[in-house]
């Protein structure tokens, strides 16, 4: 009787596991087979043509890379500063620590479309609109969707990832190093910048890459804040709009006049997006592995 129950549970969990793996495999194989055919250097380096029915996706790749780059420039220093506060200065029983902790955890759980709306309301309408009213006499310069606002919105979304990863790596620096430094007459700040931070660079790198891979895959936050359906030019100014891979997938699959004709393009775009995010995730894992080995040595 007992043995039967045992075998049933094992069987069920095994089946569930296999289903999960199969689902992933089906997605990957499907995308790889259908996307491979249309993939070429030309596809990666040219702009869409004929109303999305031809050409490549270069502007979308360019826009995505630029987006995550600007996002990192905003999110990483800010996240590192918050992590320094949480790991080095805040007392865990203090009110401010608990509130910050709660904020970081909840920020990570907010649906990404809410970030998109937040970006539209806060960055574009409030800040951008405020700038326009204050400096441009009401003429619309910053009060419109652009790569700058989209990057900042994405930065808010990925901030928790950076904070948590960097804080964790700060905490993994042995207390002995901090004590040794302080006992030599170093200030707390010197200790952080000369001993703790150099030891945590791998954590900062991992946090950045995780944030980038998250940011590269999200669509909702840039939907209202800067992504364009199609642009004949590449973004060069901070208030230009941009094309983005995730949004391009959405556009190809819903807005095309001829869905059958865009299908091969759609598959290839998804393949590029998947490969990009996978590569970033693998890099993060490798860096973390090296960091562990290095810390253990």
């Amino acid at each position: 009787m007992k043995g039967t129950l045992d075998r049933t549970v094992v069987g069920l969990s095994l089946t569930a596991t296999i289903i999960i793996v199969l689902m992933l495999l089906i997605i990957l194989v499907n995308v790889a087979i259908n996307g491979w055919a249309r993939l070429s250097i030309e596809f990666l380096t040219t702009a869409p043509q004929n109303g999305m029915n031809g050409g490549g996706i270069f502007p979308a790749i360019y826009g995505t890379v630029l987006l995550v780059l600007l996002m990192s420039i905003a999110a990483v220093p800010f996240g590192v500063l918050v992590a320094i506060y949480l790991a080095e200065y805040a007392r865990t029983e203090s009110y401010l620590y608990k509130v910050t902790r709660l904020a970081v955890n909840n920020l990570a759980g907010v649906p990404s479309i809410v970030f998109g709306l937040f970006g539209l309301g806060f960055f574009i309408q409030t800040i951008g609109g405020g700038l326009d009213d204050g400096f441009y006499g009401g003429q619309v310069v910053f009060g419109q969707p652009s790569i700058m606002w989209a990057s900042l919105t994405m930065a808010v979304l990925t901030l928790p990832v950076v904070i948590v990863t960097v804080e964790e790596s700060f905490r993994s620096v042995p207390r002995e190093y901090r004590e040794a430094s302080l006992a030599l007459g170093a200030t707390r700040l010197q200790t952080i910048f000369r001993v703790v931070l150099p030891q945590s660079w791998a954590g900062v790198m991992t946090g950045t890459i995780l944030a980038v891979s998250r940011g590269a895959g999200e669509v909702a936050p840039v939907l209202f804040t800067g992504a364009a359906f199609f642009l004949p030019y590449l973004p060069t100014r901070p208030n230009d709009q941009f094309m983005q891979l995730g949004y391009h997938v959405y556009v190809l699959s819903t807005q095309s006049p001829d869905v059958e004709a865009t299908k091969p393009l759609l598959y290839s775009t998804v393949l590029v997006l998947l490969v990009l995010t996978f590569l970033l995730n693998i890099t993060a894992v490798l860096i973390r592995k090296r960091m562990r080995a290095w810390n253990a040595a």
């Binding site: 004590e179 040794a180 430094s181 007459g185 170093a186 200030t187 000369r194």
Partner: peptide, 25 residues
């Protein structure tokens, strides 16, 4: 100055370890 029970040189070069306190002070 303080010497700890478990030796705790920084994960830096020998030189930088000795120079550390000189630099921060």
């Amino acid at each position: 100055g303080m010497i700890f029970q478990k030796s705790n040189p920084f994960p830096m070069s020998v030189y930088d370890n000795v120079a550390y306190g000189v630099r921060v002070n």
